[in-house]
Amino acid sequence: MARSALVVIDMLNPYEHQDAEQLARQVEPIVEPLAELVARAGERDDIELVYVNDNYGDFAADRREIEERAMKGRRPDLVRPVLPPPGCAFLPKVRHSAFFGTSLEYLLSQSRAERVVLAGQVTEQCVLYSALDAYVRHYELTVPPDCVASIHPDLGQAALHMMERNMSARLAPSGDCFPA
């Protein structure tokens, strides 16, 4: 059973929203380390890999449709390397937190995860709110700064500081997230 979970948040993005260009510039440097982190997590039996993604108001959309919409968007180059691997859990969400209105809490309890690693976008929004929800559920929390992207870098840095200080999150480079 998994003791840790890697939760990848909102990386299937068509980049067709108001702040998309600004966000995309911040996502560019995290794609490679995030793809590597996902690959490492996928190779281990003790890590539950979970993608949680906004459904963009389409309550009929499934994983395939959300992936296709992202790949047909403005920046498929940012999506392709981090597409969810076959067989990993995929949960659509409608609000900021990966926990709100999803079965993430149940999935984590069934896998006996004690630690949650959060990666994806947007640091000062969905990642921050998911971190708070993980913290109040008593999960150990890790956030790799090289695998999260913000719209506003100053707010992203403030969010990381809040997670570290107020939620006891460990900020660690992606290479140090899953010790052997």
Rank of each mutant, 00 (worst) to 15 (best):
D19K: 11
A60P: 00
S97G: 07
V148W: 04
F99L: 02
V122T: 09
P14K: 06
M167A: 04
D176I: 06
N13F: 03
V94F: 13
D46H: 09
R63P: 05
V127P: 08
R170K: 10
D77I: 06
T142Y: 09
F100C: 11
D58E: 06
L12M: 15
F100A: 13
A2R: 08
G156R: 00
A24N: 10
M163F: 06
L12S: 14
P85T: 13
E48N: 09
G175C: 13
T123F: 01
P144K: 09
S4D: 06
D46I: 07
D58W: 03
D154H: 14
D45C: 12
F178P: 07
H96Q: 13
Y106E: 08
E65M: 14
V8L: 03
D176S: 09
I66L: 03
G101I: 02
G175M: 14
L37V: 00
V122E: 05
H17N: 12
R75N: 06
P173W: 10
V143R: 10
G120R: 11
V143Y: 11
R3I: 15
L23M: 01
N55W: 11
C177W: 00
S103K: 11
D10Q: 14
D54G: 13
G73S: 10
M162R: 11
R44F: 02
A39K: 13
R74S: 09
M163V: 05
Q121F: 02
E68W: 07
L104Q: 03
N53I: 01
L49F: 03
H152R: 15
E68D: 10
G57P: 02
L91T: 06
V50W: 03
M163P: 04
V50Q: 03
Q110V: 11
Q125W: 06
V122L: 04
V38A: 05
A134N: 09
E105D: 11
N53Q: 02
V148P: 02
L155P: 11
E68A: 10
L23V: 00
R40H: 11
P86K: 12
S97F: 06
K72Y: 09
P179K: 07
L160H: 10
A158L: 06
L128D: 03
S150P: 03
D54A: 14
D58F: 06
A149Q: 13
D58N: 08
M163S: 04
A5S: 04
R170V: 09
F90K: 04
S111R: 01
I47W: 02
G175R: 12
E32S: 15
V116F: 12
A119K: 13
L107T: 04
R40M: 08
E140W: 12
I66V: 01
E28R: 10
K72A: 10
N55G: 09
A172R: 07
C177L: 01
M163N: 05
A2F: 05
F99H: 01
E105P: 00
D45V: 09
P145Y: 08
R69T: 15
A119Y: 14
L108R: 02
H152D: 15
V52P: 04
F90P: 04
P144V: 10
H152Y: 15
E16F: 05
A24S: 14
G156Y: 00
P85Q: 15
Q125G: 05
V52Y: 04
V7A: 01
R25L: 15
Q18R: 08
E140V: 11
E48Q: 13
M162Y: 09
L132V: 11
T123V: 04
E105T: 00
N166W: 15
V136Q: 12
R40K: 10
M162S: 12
L23D: 00
R64K: 08
Y139S: 02
N55A: 10
A180G: 10
Y51C: 03
